[in-house]
Design a protein around this nucleic acid. Structure first.
Lengths: 214, 214
DNA sequence: AACATATGAATGAACG
DNA sequence: CGTTCATTCATATGTT
């Protein structure tokens, strides 16, 4: 298919019959082909990987956590984009109420209380008991944490500040569960699968070509 | 397939378009551009997914075959400290097995059972009896709680959970490869990585164009 | 667009 | 066992 159009390339930018056709040189065309086929290959490989991995993972049953198919969502804003929000966000009013309840002290709301609160907040927006529950959990945890780290500094060690918390084992059994690792490091240094790195470099190459054409 | 003649004909802005060489019309060029950019986007997304997934997996302990440095590690003075993960995270395979056992009913595993399970899971990653014990405790508690808090509409979760394959396996390393379906379903509605399906359809679309150009 | 922060949610562990 | 804590993950939002 790339036989005889060299000639065209030569005169493709004269203003002749105004625009009539844009032509590409053989080389350009060829480059495009390569690029596309590279992309196609990469995609296939990636999809393959993704499937095999997710199959395993989903299989495990997890990872399906949060889907909010709020029935209301459909109703919201006259027949338009279903902005399926993936996580609940308290409305200002709800937040206000929550904060008030939280400040009232009274510690952790029990189940009954949560139900009540949920009902109350429900008048101001979609909400579930779980949301309320989580909110209090997080609120408590984070307010506590704030107290503890007003001025914390470490020159270099990043995340693992409070590393060793000497845990006592209550179970009479073996509790040799310590597991090492910082996954950041691992994932950066050791590639999970060899093919991936190669793909990445190919993608970069492709993008490189791409910058010319796109 | 049908395209070649047609597209040329489509270049009708001027009759002169009939340069009888293989050039690309604006439309074709545009199509190519779109195709490439689609591929680029797809690749990016896929790479992203892949990374996040493999990261998780690493996290989950896939890669910690090489273990924990023990108290010795503490002695590793100086700047380099291998950060130890403080809490156990089941690998997908372990999770799978645990879920299976849980679903089998049989309530709370007794000590003996826990020992057995621990041994079995130990083949797939570091784990202790305490971990197993806790896992069952939590699993039970939370599944019970879920009944009481019907608010969150995870309508699917249940159904999917029961799509368990009747396939029986004794060997823990057998991978069940079902449930791609449920994954896909989830993706259709709203899923954490919403987009995979869309990507797939785009890829198909791209391949479609591709069949012409490539 | 890369990076930072806030926060909802998930979950292992611990407590009473 | 039921409940709570602590940590982590993921996403939404904001900043440079």
């Amino acid at each position: 298919m790339e036989a005889e159009q060299d000639t065209r390339a030569a005169n493709n930018n004269n203003g002749i019959g105004s625009l009539y056709v844009k032509v590409m040189t053989d080389e350009q065309l060829e480059m495009l082909r390569q690029q596309i086929s590279v992309y196609a290959t990469i995609c296939d490989r990636l999809v393959e990987m993704h499937k095999s991995i997710t199959t395993q993972q989903d299989l495990a049953g997890m990872r399906l956590g949060n889907l909010y198919c709020d029935p209301l969502m459909a109703a919201c804003s006259g027949g338009h984009k279903i902005t399926a929000r993936q996580r609940w966000t308290p409305t200002p009013i709800q937040l206000q109420i929550l904060e008030r309840i939280f400040d009232e002290g009274n510690g952790t709301p029990n189940k009954q209380k949560i139900k009540e609160i949920t009902v109350e907040l429900g008048q101001h927006g979609q909400i579930s008991e779980t949301n309320v529950y989580n909110w209090f959990q997080n609120r408590r945890a984070r307010s506590k944490r704030k107290q503890l780290l007003p001025s914390q500094n470490n020159l270099e060690a990043e995340a693992d500040a409070e590393v060793e918390s000497p845990k006592e084992k209550k179970m009479p059994e073996i509790q040799e569960t310590i597991q090492l690792h910082s996954y950041e490091n691992l994932s950066h240094t050791t590639s999970p699968d060899l093919g991936f790195e190669q793909l990445m470099s190919k993608i970069e190459a492709a993008s490189c070509y791409g910058s010319y054409f796109l």
